[in-house]
Amino acid sequence: MYDLGDIVEMKKAHPCGVNRWEITRMGADIKIKCTGCGHVVMMPRREFDKKLKKMLVKKDAD
């Protein structure tokens, strides 16, 4: 569904006004980075799955 380096949209926008996040770490916890201000958030995978709205950009599998 989603992988490292993908850009996703969450249900709630970040306070900086941008709603695009890049996945920077995958595992039991997922780390995402705001593409607007660079703020990093880490959350459990279950919480991430609930807050995810949609996939925006899939990273190319080179």
Rank of each mutant, 00 (worst) to 15 (best):
Y2H: 12
Y2V: 11
L4D: 03
G5M: 00
G5W: 13
G5A: 08
G5I: 07
G5R: 02
D6C: 02
V8T: 02
V8Q: 02
V8E: 10
M10Q: 11
M10V: 12
M10D: 07
K11R: 10
K12S: 05
K12D: 14
K12H: 03
A13L: 03
H14S: 03
P15G: 07
P15W: 00
P15R: 12
C16D: 05
C16I: 01
G17W: 05
G17H: 11
N19P: 05
N19S: 11
N19H: 09
R20S: 14
W21D: 01
W21S: 09
E22L: 06
T24H: 15
M26V: 05
M26K: 00
G27S: 09
G27M: 01
A28V: 15
A28M: 15
D29P: 07
I30R: 02
K33Q: 14
C34F: 07
T35D: 04
T35P: 05
G38N: 06
G38T: 08
G38I: 02
G38E: 00
H39E: 02
H39R: 10
H39Y: 11
V40P: 07
V40E: 10
V40N: 06
V41E: 11
V41T: 13
M42V: 15
M43I: 07
M43Y: 00
M43P: 07
P44Q: 15
R45E: 04
R45S: 03
R45K: 13
R46V: 14
E47C: 15
D49K: 04
K50N: 09
K51D: 00
K53I: 04
K53A: 09
K53M: 01
K54G: 08
M55G: 08
L56R: 01
V57W: 13
K58M: 07
K58I: 11
K59I: 14
K59A: 15
K59G: 14
D60T: 13
D60L: 13
A61L: 11
D62R: 08
